[in-house]
């Protein structure tokens, strides 16, 4: 097994631009990812930051092969998955999982929490589903009894934990987390981040964490990739990037972090 989880070279992806589609003929393409290259070693926690529309989610969905790149290559554990058809991807899918931004929309509202977590396990031929579901719930700090609840009966933070439980239950090699705390209030945010930190430590997860909030990245990630308009403008150690940001847009993102004002008082 290779100890590079991902090896990405010159990754390009374009969408048809429907706003400029002529009456007849195909729409012109608009390039959203413009030749990205980076590696993710096993055990790494990588932050992917960038302003809105910089292509973070598109990159994530391409890495999980929810989208097919138009150019370049994605090697997952040494295997080229760039253009693999869905049928060939399916057995591999257990190994790369995703936690979605909006847990309300990413959990099927008609299924109980237990069914939601057990479904993917059953697809990949796991046995002893009941116990595995229980363990996954335990890992994310939800009581066993939650398995009989429906998603709409949970709080936002609890829902996001169910999303995490579903991903880790499959014992994947890699997890992508796309803006998973941006929909939560501050205290649930902190709890979910703590949980993720613990899971990374305990399970040795390899994680890519997408966010537009650098303060979250600084806490969680060793390494950071800064995206701007579909290109990588900066990459390196999180601490180093914070100390001496090279690109202008990185500086902007750092300045956007609200600093506690020492002069402010409660009075």
């Amino acid at each position: 097994m290779s100890d590079m989880i991902y090896r990405i070279r010159d990754l390009r992806l374009d969408f048809p631009d429907m706003t400029r589609k002529p009456l007849f003929g195909p729409a012109p393409r608009i390039e959203v990812l413009k030749g990205l290259g980076f590696d993710i070693p096993r055990g790494d926690v990588v932050g992917i930051v960038g302003s809105s529309g910089s292509g973070k989610s598109t990159l994530g969905r391409a890495m999980l092969r929810l989208l097919e790149p138009s150019h370049g290559s994605i090697l997952f554990e040494g295997r080229d998955i760039t253009h693999l058809p869905e049928s060939a991807l399916r057995p591999l899918r257990r190994k790369f999982q995703m936690i979605f931004q909006d847990p309300m929309s990413s959990l099927n509202p008609r299924l109980t929490v237990g069914t939601i977590i057990a479904g993917p396990l059953r697809l990949h031929g796991f046995d002893d589903l009941g116990r595995r579901v229980g363990r996954a719930l335990d890992h994310v700090g939800l009581p066993e009894a939650m398995r009989h609840r429906y998603p709409h009966e949970l709080s936002g933070g609890q829902r996001q934990r169910v999303g995490i439980a579903r991903a880790i239950a499959l014992e994947p090699d890699f997890i992508l987390a796309d803006e998973i705390v941006s929909g939560l209030d501050v205290s649930s945010q902190a709890q979910v981040l703590n949980l993720l930190e613990t899971l990374v430590r305990e399970l040795g997860l390899t994680l890519a964490f997408i966010s537009h909030d650098l303060s979250v990245i600084r806490r969680l990630c060793k390494r950071v990739i800064v995206l701007h308009r579909g290109e990588i403008v900066e990459t390196g150690d999180t601490a180093a990037v914070f100390r001496a940001p090279k690109a202008a847009c990185t500086r902007e993102l750092i300045e956007a972090i609200p600093l506690p004002d020492p002069n402010q008082t409660w009075a």
């Binding site: 899918r93 257990r94 995703m98 990949h124 499959l170």
Partner: peptide, 8 residues
């Protein structure tokens, strides 16, 4: 999308 990620 999540079902696709799960391999359904």
């Amino acid at each position: 999308a999540s079902a696709q990620v799960a391999g359904r």
